[in-house]
Design a protein around this nucleic acid. Structure first.
Lengths: 109, 109
DNA sequence: AGTTTTTTCGTAAATGTAGAACATATTGAT
DNA sequence: ATCAATATGTTCTACATTTACGAAAAAACT
C-alpha cells in the first residue's frame, strides 16, 4: 500500500505539523505530540514518518537559518502541501460520514 | 506499540463493524468498505484486522445461526466492545481537537 | 577542541496486503 | 438416503509497509 494511505502515526504527525506552523521540525513535533497526547514517540519514529510524508508529497521541507545564536545542527522545517491538506481533509470527512451511520444500538453491547 | 494504538485500517474496520451492526462479518465488512470508500481490501486483510481487533479487546465475536438458507460456512459475527467504543471515541475527539488548533495560515503553502 | 542541537542510520516489531487452502452448509442427481 | 457439486466463509502462509527505538554522525556555536 505504498504511498496510497496515511498511516495512523503519519496522520498524527501531519496534524501536529499544522499546529506547529511555521516552526515544525523533528524535535518540536516530538514534544508537541507529548504535550497534546501524552504519547512518547521516539525521535527516530518521528523522523521516519516525516521522511515518508515528504516522499509521498504530503509535506515539503527547507533548512532553517544557520545564523542563529545557539549551537547545533540546522533545523529541517516542514510545511503541509496541497496534497497533504487534501489527504487530511479526506480522512476527516470520511470518518465523520462513517461515524454518523453507526446506529446507537451498535454501542450497547 | 502492541495493542496500544488503533492502526489506520483497524480503525476503518471498527467503524464499518458499527455500521453493519448486528450483521457484521468478514465478507460483509469487505463489501461495505468497498461501498463506503471504493477501497478494495483483500479478504485476508479484513480477517487479519478482525482477529487483531478481537485480541486487543476492541471486538468480540460469536457464530451465527447454522440454519441459514444458503450453503456455506457459518458466519462469525462481530460487535464492538466498550473498549472498542472508547478507542474510537478517543481518536475522534483527539483529531477534532488537533484540527481546531491548526491556524489557517498553515494551509496556505 | 568541546559542547549543543538536530538529523541520519540500522535493526526489530507491529500493522497492512494478498490470495490460496481449508471448512461447512445447501442443492441436486442417482 | 448418499454423494458429488456448488456456494459461502474463515484460516493459513508469506511478504510489504509502517512504526519504534536509540546509537551514531553531522553541523553549528563557544
Amino acid at each position: 500500500m505504498k504511498g496510497t494511505h496515511l498511516g495512523e502515526f503519519e496522520e498524527l504527525v501531519l496534524l501536529i505539523i499544522g499546529i506547529l506552523y511555521p516552526d515544525a521540525y523533528g524535535l518540536a513535533v516530538r514534544n508537541e505530540i507529548k504535550n497534546q497526547t501524552g504519547r512518547s514517540a521516539a525521535i527516530g519514529a518521528v523522523h521516519s514518518a516525516l521522511s515518508r510524508l515528504e516522499e509521498k508529497g504530503f509535506l515539503k521541507s527547507h533548512l532553517g537559518d544557520s545564523t542563529s545564536e545557539r549551537g547545533g545542527r540546522r533545523k529541517k522545517l516542514y510545511t503541509i502541501t496541497a496534497e497533504g491538506k487534501k489527504a487530511v481533509a479526506y480522512n476527516r470527512s470520511l470518518r465523520n460520514q462513517l461515524w454518523n451511520q453507526i446506529p446507537d444500538l451498535a454501542w450497547d453491547t
